[in-house]
Simulated assay, not measured.
Amino acid sequence: MQDHSVFEPDGQRKIAYHRTMAEGEGVGKPGIVFLGGYSSDMTGTKAVWLEEWARARGRAFLRFDYQAHGASSGDWADGSIGAWSQDAFDIIAAMTEGPQILVGSSMGGWMSLLTARKLPDRVAGIVGIAAAPDFTEDGMYADFTEDQREMLERDGQIALESDYDPEPYIVTKHFIEEGRNNLVLRSPLSLPFPVRFLHGTADTDVPYTRAMDTLHHADCPDFRVVLVKDADHRFSSEPCLQLIGEMVDQIS
């Protein structure tokens, strides 16, 4: 049985989502939107935990799957930063009211920054969790060997091993090139609201220096980075989850 709703912004894309409405003490406070990471979905530990956290406080909450993720439609080979950020823009515009606190995990941190650029009046604050802005260029492409770069040019795609899945995942030339159209750390980045970036020192997927890069680059009057000793990229231990809730509370 389907346990999610479906949003069709253009009659073609089918974006799966869960939404909780505000009630009681949460009415009048900014809603909360969880933006997931690359190749993850809205059923992950952080998304579900934060939904329960928000419900207990009467806060409006939204989690969703980008195209080709989880229960949403789409083919992985067609995915891109631009397409997935458009999913975020569309569902936030249609399914939330007023300013929102964006909680972005890994790639979702990049999506949060793109949303702030596109919909500045709809963002009340950002909590980034192991945020990975510009990872297609600075994480993927920068780490490719010459052979991998040649294969990408020749074949239009390469297969990479995953630490989270036994099957390799496909990275296309289009994905890398289109990512360059959405970089946020190479042009002015105005964030006129509170921002908190949380990062583990044991994160081997996205170095915690990426949080510091964003802190130094952004034009933001209230940007703080919190490092958690020995936390990894998942950032899903109970203390880490509690810290996420504390940061949302702090900027709400």
Rank of each mutant, 00 (worst) to 15 (best):
Asp165Ala: 09
Asp219Gln: 13
Arg186Pro: 13
Ile101Thr: 15
Gly70Val: 00
Gly109Phe: 11
Thr43Asn: 14
Phe61Val: 03
Ala231Glu: 03
Ile158Arg: 04
Gln67His: 04
Leu160Gln: 14
Glu238Cys: 06
Ser252Val: 02
Asp138Cys: 03
Ala218Arg: 05
Ser5Asp: 11
Ser162Leu: 12
Ile32Pro: 00
Thr20Val: 15
Gly58Trp: 14
Arg186Glu: 12
Ser190Glu: 08
Gly125Ile: 01
Gly37Leu: 07
Asp147Ile: 02
Pro99Phe: 05
Leu160Asn: 04
Lys118Thr: 05
Val127Asp: 05
Thr45Phe: 04
Leu102Tyr: 11
Phe64Tyr: 04
Asp165Gly: 08
Ala218His: 00
Thr214Met: 03
Asp249Arg: 14
Pro9Tyr: 07
Ala132Cys: 09
His69Thr: 04
Thr209Tyr: 05
Tyr66Gln: 00
Ile176Tyr: 06
Phe235Gln: 10
Lys173Ser: 11
Asp10Leu: 07
Phe89Ser: 05
Gly24Asp: 06
Val226Asp: 11
Gly82Ala: 07
Ala60Val: 08
Phe197Glu: 12
Ser105Val: 01
Gly37Cys: 14
Gln2Glu: 13
Ile176Leu: 01
Ser190Met: 05
Trp49Glu: 13
Pro133Gly: 01
Pro221Glu: 13
Phe61Gly: 05
Glu52Pro: 14
Met107Val: 09
Glu238Thr: 14
Glu178Trp: 00
Gly128Ala: 12
Leu189Cys: 06
Tyr141Val: 07
Glu137Pro: 02
Pro194Trp: 15
Val206Gln: 08
Gln2Thr: 14
Thr201Tyr: 10
Val206Cys: 07
Ser162Lys: 08
Arg117Leu: 06
Leu215His: 15
Asp230Lys: 01
Thr115Cys: 08
Gln250Trp: 15
Met151Glu: 08
Thr172Pro: 13
Ser106Cys: 03
Ala159Tyr: 10
Arg234Asn: 15
Leu198Gln: 09
Asp90Cys: 06
Ala83Glu: 06
Glu238Lys: 13
Asp147Trp: 02
Ser85Asn: 12
Ile126Leu: 10
Tyr164Ser: 05
Ser73Arg: 01
Leu35Ala: 15
Ala159Pro: 01
Leu35Ser: 12
Asp147Cys: 00
Ile101Met: 15
Ala71Phe: 01
Met140Trp: 12
Glu23Ala: 05
Glu8Arg: 10
Gly74Asp: 03
Thr209Phe: 08
Leu114Glu: 09
Gly11Arg: 00
Glu177Ile: 01
Met247Trp: 04
Ile101Val: 15
Asn181Ile: 04
Leu160Thr: 03
Phe144His: 00
Val171Thr: 05
Ser72Arg: 07
Thr209Val: 01
Lys14Met: 10
Ala231Gln: 01
Glu167Gln: 10
Thr96Ile: 06
Val195Ala: 08
Ser39Asn: 10
Met107Gly: 14
His199Pro: 15
Ser252Ile: 04
Ala71Gly: 02
Asn182His: 15
Pro99Glu: 08
Glu97His: 06
Leu62Glu: 11
Arg149Leu: 06
Ser85Cys: 10
Ala202Glu: 07
Ile91Met: 11
Arg55Tyr: 03
Asp90Leu: 09
